[in-house]
């Protein structure tokens, strides 16, 4: 399947700062791509280039086969965007701003809007001046989710939302996924991307350092194993693929290489396994490894 969003060797410079050095990734139809990196890594810059807000200095970018700088009008008909920092006019209510954004986007669904306002528990009659960060974010999200698009670009969409609302957001994203729409979801909050994303792109200092499905990326790291055995668990310490072994009473905690997992399990059963917990690496672990390296 051809990608609907394609970025290759993207470069951008602000004055002396090289904000993007080499950004390459793609989003395929029906795919949800998590775009992960710490603040200042270049996530928002990449997204702004994709929206034609700023111009790239080098490399290629394509959405629906079109150039985001030259053909932004054509592209914008089919995308929804929520910026990371939603600023709202204090003289308008949340409801008015949602209506305005929907109208400027076109193809809005009023019923969907009302449904989302209810789900996100937003008071649309309140002046936007009085909204908290989370409520401002809701306004942006409701406007973007109420219109029909083929590609959704969300920059740090859940910052400021409480866990309940984050849950609501994730459920709405699931629906988009079920409808076979695509999404680029930037975040430094790893758990939300972990649940939603089919693929993860990790950016660091303007460069993509890792791309792949979560499963693929997990091969790069080790799972955490907690093992309790009848016999002396310390015998586990010296087999291949076991790292950083720590013992506490009859319980051993260690990291396991995935290719040695079978050997480890065979050995464990010989010692008489009483309890076994294997935790796959979280994105956090992936992340830390990249930043330490």
């Amino acid at each position: 399947m051809t990608a609907i969003l394609k970025v290759e060797g993207l470069k951008k410079q602000f004055g002396k700062v090289q904000a993007l050095r080499d950004v390459t990734f793609n989003v395929k139809p029906g795919e949800i791509v998590g775009f992960i990196g710490p603040n200042g890594a270049g996530k928002s810059t990449t997204i702004r280039i994709l929206l034609g807000i700023i111009k790239r200095d080098g490399g290629r970018a394509e959405i629906f086969g079109k150039d985001p700088w030259k053909d932004s009008f054509e592209i914008h008909k089919r995308i929804s965007y929520v910026p990371g920092d939603v600023s709202l006019w204090g003289s308008l209510t949340g409801g008015e701003i949602i209506d305005l954004f929907m109208k400027l986007h076109g193809s809005g669904d009023k019923e969907k809007r009302d449904y989302l306002i209810e789900r996100f528990e937003l008071d649309p009659r309140k002046n936007a001046k009085g909204y908290s960060k989370g409520n401002r974010q809701k306004v942006g999200l409701i406007a973007a989710l109420s219109v029909d698009s083929d590609l959704y670009i969300f920059d740090e969409p859940t910052s400021g939302l409480d866990p309940l609302m984050e849950q609501v957001f994730q459920e709405e994203v699931e629906k988009i996924k079920d409808a076979n729409k695509s999404m680029l979801l930037s975040s430094h909050i790893l758990s939300e991307v972990e649940r939603l994303a089919d693929k993860v792109v990790i950016i660091r200092q303007g460069e993509i350092v890792e791309t792949g499905t979560l499963d693929e990326l997990r091969h790069l790291t080790r799972s955490t194993v907690i093992l309790e055995t009848k016999d002396d668990v310390s015998k586990m310490a010296n087999i291949n693929g076991v790292h950083d072994f720590v013992q506490k009473d009859n319980q051993g905690i260690f990291f396991a290489d995935h290719e040695y997992l079978n050997d480890i399990l065979v050995k464990a059963t010989k010692l008489g396994t009483k309890k076994l917990e294997i935790t796959p690496p979280t994105l956090e672990d992936l992340f830390m490894r990249h930043y330490e390296g």
């Binding site: 929206l51 914008h76 910026p83 920092d85 600023s87 986007h105």
Partner: peptide, 14 residues
């Protein structure tokens, strides 16, 4: 500059 137009840049508005 104050980010009020950010979301509008992503719409059909030229």
């Amino acid at each position: 500059k104050n980010l009020y137009l950010s979301q509008i840049y992503g719409t059909k508005v030229r």
